[in-house]
């Protein structure tokens, strides 16, 4: 059973998708947690299916991420790599950055200090 089929019921989170140059930028506004992770996954996979290959997830306006949120990023990273694409993470605050360091996920992801850096070639 998939327990995450209720995207949007949390009510305090939005995922904004936009194109910047050749990249697809997804902004996480709120929390990325077990209750909404599937919505992010669906949005990214839909863009991947439409042909997008360069992705940046922007955490400028993100409060916190739980282990399910980290897990969905790992899963998306794998899916994007399988299509020879590229996933970058941008604008993690100190707390979020520490989550990636504690879990050693900073070794798996390309993390940039700013969205501008992440969009640079």
């Amino acid at each position: 059973m998939d327990h995450s089929d209720n995207p949007g019921r949390e009510g305090t989170m939005t995922f904004n998708v936009r194109k910047v140059g050749g990249a697809t930028v997804i902004s996480v506004d709120g929390q990325l947690i077990v209750g909404n992770r599937q919505e992010l996954k669906q949005k990214v996979l839909a863009e991947l299916e439409r042909g997008a290959r360069r992705f940046v997830i922007d955490f400028t306006r993100t409060g916190y991420i739980d282990s399910s949120g980290l897990g969905i990023l790992v899963s998306l990273s794998r899916s994007i790599r399988q299509e020879r694409g590229d996933l970058r993470l941008a604008s993690l605050n100190d707390d979020l950055r520490t989550l990636f360091e504690l879990t050693k996920l900073d070794t798996l992801f390309e993390i940039h200090a700013t969205l501008r850096d992440a969009l640079a070639d």
Partner: peptide
């Protein structure tokens, strides 16, 4: 590290 799951208890303890 490449697994999508298994970090919850670790994060609580950390």
């Amino acid at each position: 590290i490449p697994r999508p799951d298994g970090r919850g208890i670790f994060l609580m303890r950390a």
